[in-house]
Amino acid sequence: MDAVTERVIQVIAKAQHIPVETVKAESTFEELKIDSLDGLQIVFALEEEFDISIPDEEAKALRSIEQAVAGIRQLLAAKASATA
């Protein structure tokens, strides 16, 4: 598993108060019983973890770990090229 996915899994497990082993790279938010309030807290935690800013539309559209990882990679890349 790559570093970004691992960190995303850690953040989500902590936010949901569930064991890390129960969160898989393929898990959907529905499977993890993440509701809208949970989603808000997870977006906040991910922003804090990676020091990024996730736009509203993307935040609302988040439905899975894979999606979160892909979006975060993009934001990290954009950040890297902006400071390059």
Binding site: L37, L40, Q41, V43, F44, E47, E48, S53
Partner: peptide
């Protein structure tokens, strides 16, 4: 900080 806890309102 540019963000704080999203559940501040509730």
């Amino acid at each position: 900080k540019t963000r704080f806890h999203p559940l501040t309102i509730p």
